[in-house]
Simulated scan of single mutants.
Amino acid sequence: MEDGTLDRRQVLAGLSGLALGQMPFASFAQTELRIGQRQVTSISDGHLVLPGAMFFDHLPRAELNRILSDHGVSFEELRPPCNLTLMQEPDRVVLFDAGSGAGFMPSAGSMLASLETQGLAPEDITHVIITHAHPDHLWGILDDFDDLVFPNAEVMIGEQEWAYWTDPATVDTIGEARASFAVGAARRLDAIRDQVSLFNGGDEILPGVMAHGTPGHTPGHMSFEIRDGSDVVMVGGDAIGNHHVAFARPEWPSGTDQDQDLGAKTRVRLLDQLATERLPLMGFHLPGGGLGRVERLGDAYRFVEWGA
């Protein structure tokens, strides 16, 4: 793995391990909290199955093994959960990210079943806010027939992220391992073009929802602060991509970030902010439904699940 690219053989190795089929819905984690009049709920889109080398190649193996052992994580295979954030308020039903749909991995794509447990249909969603355009965050915006899953929703995405994935040159510059990501994103973004509104970091995109630029994982990755007075939570997307190495050694590069140096700088900055300001975090690939707090641990950090 060089220059921030993923080896296609690693991706295929991860996909080959997906004979598990769909994960039983009863095992999905769900967590919720109140932000003023808003109910913020973590709902599951299932989980991914990925080779550890995709994350860990070229990291110092002895220290890496110690961190993974401390967290009971295998180097060979990771199964990160996919936690979507649902925000309900009297006049809006907002979904942060759209999940992966049926076409990415058989262990993921359970967003619609999760919505149903909340008494919601896709037509009830008024806004879909995209952290970034990777498959497990965007591809669920269309169904198996390429029809709109959320026909009544305004889809909101950062201007830089939109520009990157809709640029015809991206498929030729992103690298072979991610070329399918570029093709899939461009097709889906074109299909929802009439529903899309763009924003930038620092914008209040909805009342009480502030966008924070957190680039590196993708060029225009965004996180979102939901706040009502002192009640607050940060929806982090993939800016902090796991609960082990990303916290123990946030300055280490991650093979899942398109710009590994920038991703590490963003991760260090965001963890420092979350720990210093004691902001709850809703992480897309973090355990326990993704909701927890960040604690400083010497020169490193740790993720503490909500209620622990």
Score class of each variant (00 low, 15 high):
Ser114Leu: 05
Glu116Lys: 11
Ala102Met: 07
Glu204Pro: 06
Ser44Thr: 11
Thr126Asn: 05
Val294Arg: 00
Ala133Leu: 08
Glu176Asn: 09
Ile205Glu: 06
Trp139Asn: 10
Glu32Trp: 14
Glu154Asn: 13
Leu95Phe: 05
Leu120His: 10
Leu286Thr: 06
Asp228Lys: 04
Leu95Val: 06
Arg92His: 11
Met234Thr: 02
Pro207Ile: 06
Glu295Ile: 01
His47Glu: 15
Val49Cys: 12
Asn152Ser: 11
Leu281Pro: 02
Gly202Leu: 02
Met23Glu: 15
Pro207Leu: 01
Gly237Thr: 03
Ile67Gly: 05
Phe55Gln: 06
Gly158Asn: 15
Pro60Val: 06
Pro122Lys: 09
Val11Asn: 09
Ile67His: 12
Asp272Ala: 09
Gly72Lys: 05
Leu84Trp: 09
Ile141Val: 06
Phe104Ala: 03
Glu251Gln: 14
Cys82Thr: 12
Thr266Gly: 01
Ser197Ile: 10
Thr170Gln: 04
Glu77Leu: 15
Phe56Gly: 02
Leu271Ile: 00
Ala186Asn: 13
Ser180Leu: 15
Asp172Trp: 01
Glu77Arg: 14
Val232Leu: 10
Leu271Thr: 00
Val40Ser: 02
Arg187Asp: 11
Leu148Cys: 03
Ala29Lys: 13
Leu95His: 05
Val171Glu: 15
Leu20Ser: 14
Ile192Pro: 02
Phe28Arg: 07
Asp231Ala: 12
Phe303His: 05
Glu32Arg: 15
Asp124Lys: 03
Leu270Trp: 08
Glu154Met: 11
